Simulated assay, not measured.
Amino acid sequence: MPTTPTPGRGRRGVAVHGEGAPQQGEDWLAEEAPLELRYNGRPFAVMMATPLDLEDFATGFTLSEGLLAGADGIRGVAVQALLEGWVVDIDAPGVAVPGDDAARLLPGRSGCGVCGSRRLEDVLRPLPSLPAGLRIEAQALQRALAQLQQRQPLNAATGAMHAAAWATVDGRLRHVREDVGRHNALDKLLGALVREGADPGDGFVLVSSRASYEMATKAARLGVGLLAAISAPTTLAVDLARDCGLTLVGFLRPGRQVVYTHPQRLVQAPP
């Protein structure tokens, strides 16, 4: 069974080379395992992920991929650990899994959000326009960023985890999820919000990675009005954000951030 002494991480032997003789020791490493997603007992995709918060992941993945319009279509999630990895079976009668000749049969690697999608129209799907009402103080992004590092225990131990966080409009972090895959971390976060009954559009999302097209798509599909990334966005992510009304922020660093689309959502605090 793929378990470790501490969930999400495991120790492995290492030899540290530097000055003098190599030193033998152990290192904490991020846990990465194959995760088979099934809908109603039928295989849909195999993802590489950190096997934590899998109910959140199943919910977020289902909604952010547009397989269901709402979480009320998910009747239950069953998680099973096997020798080879993990199986997550989502009971969702409204999801029709195609036959084996058309299914998403390729694996979804840790760094890939659309691996296994076999047609262009499956990837470049239009999104509804986001409402324009959200207003966030620009300094709130800095407050959220200042809290993020302390809310990433697995990354602190392993140095190999991405994080996705949701903050209120004043910059208080409410939820953080970690995973070796940036898309997985975001799906876990969105799933946690939906399962709690929170509206993702009432705050903003901060990710410790680049803002790719897939990340922007997942956020926008769940109604997130502002996505902030520590790294850069891609051209396609900017185009998508501009078209659907998503405020996209990149290079979020202490004292600095770059706004690529819809800057009207960010307001300056009064003096």
Results as ranks from 00 to 15, higher is better:
Phe204Cys: 12
Ala185Thr: 00
Arg109Gln: 12
Ala185Glu: 05
Leu120Met: 12
Val97Pro: 09
Leu186Pro: 07
Asp122His: 14
Cys115Phe: 02
Trp166Cys: 05
His183Val: 03
Ala164Ile: 01
Lys188Glu: 08
Ala96Val: 14
Ala146Asp: 09
Arg177Val: 03
Val114Arg: 12
Cys112Ile: 01
Val114Asn: 10
Arg177Lys: 07
Gly159Asn: 03
Ala140Ile: 02
Trp166Gln: 04
Ala165Thr: 02
Arg177Met: 06
Arg143Ala: 14
Leu134Phe: 01
Ser208Leu: 10
Ala92Ile: 01
Val180Lys: 08
Gly197Lys: 05
Arg109Trp: 12
Ala211His: 02
Gly108His: 04
Pro107Met: 11
Ala167Phe: 02
Leu148Thr: 05
Gln139Phe: 02
Asp100Gly: 10
Gly133Asp: 15
Gly116Lys: 07
Leu141Pro: 07
Gln147Asn: 06
Arg104Thr: 11
Glu214Arg: 14
Gly108Tyr: 02
Glu178Met: 08
Gly133Val: 13
Arg118Ile: 02
Gly159Leu: 03
Phe204Glu: 10
Gly94Gln: 14
Arg125Ala: 15
Gly113Pro: 03
Ile90Ala: 13
Gly108Val: 10
Ala192Val: 00
Leu120Cys: 09
Gly94Pro: 00
Phe204Asn: 11
Arg195Gly: 00
Arg135Asp: 05
Pro153Val: 12
Ile136Lys: 09
Ala185Met: 06
Ser212Gly: 15
Ser212His: 10
Leu106Lys: 04
Asp187Arg: 07
Val180Trp: 02
Pro126Arg: 09
Gln150Tyr: 06
Val123Thr: 14
Leu148Gln: 12
Cys112Thr: 08
Asp122Ser: 15
Leu173Trp: 02
Pro200Val: 06
Ser129Lys: 13
Gly197Ser: 06
Ser212Glu: 12
Tyr213Leu: 14
Ser212Arg: 05
Glu214His: 06
Ala144His: 01
Ala156Thr: 00
Ala92Glu: 12
Arg151Leu: 13
Val97Asn: 05
Arg135Phe: 08
Ile90Asn: 12
Pro153Ala: 15
Leu189Ala: 13
Thr158Met: 11
Val169Asp: 10
Asp202Asn: 09
Arg172Ile: 01
Val194Asn: 07
Gly99Pro: 04
Phe204Gly: 14
Phe204Arg: 10
Ala163Glu: 06
Met161Lys: 04
Gly116Leu: 10
Pro200Trp: 08
Arg210Phe: 01
Ala156Ile: 00
Phe204Ala: 05
Arg177Phe: 00
Arg151Ser: 08
Ala167Pro: 10
Asp91Ser: 13
Pro107Tyr: 11
Glu137Ile: 00
Ala102Ile: 00
Arg135Trp: 03
Gln152Glu: 11
Arg210Thr: 07
Gly111Tyr: 04
Ala163His: 09
Gly197Asp: 12
Glu137Gly: 15
Arg195Asp: 04
Val123Trp: 06
Asp101Leu: 09
Met161Ala: 12
Val205Met: 01
Asp101Arg: 12
Leu189Tyr: 08
Ala165Pro: 04
Ala198Pro: 00
Gly171His: 07
Arg174Cys: 07
Ala102Gly: 13
Ala103Trp: 02
Glu137Thr: 01
Ser208Gln: 05
Arg118Phe: 05
Ala157Val: 03
Leu141Gly: 11
Pro107Asp: 12
Met161Cys: 13
Gln139Ser: 15
Leu186Met: 14
Gly203Trp: 01
Asp199Arg: 10
Ala92Pro: 07
Gly94Lys: 04
Pro107Thr: 13
Ser129Cys: 11
Leu106Ser: 11
Gly116Asp: 13
Arg177Leu: 08
Ala103His: 03
Pro98Leu: 06
Gly108Glu: 11
Ser117Asn: 15
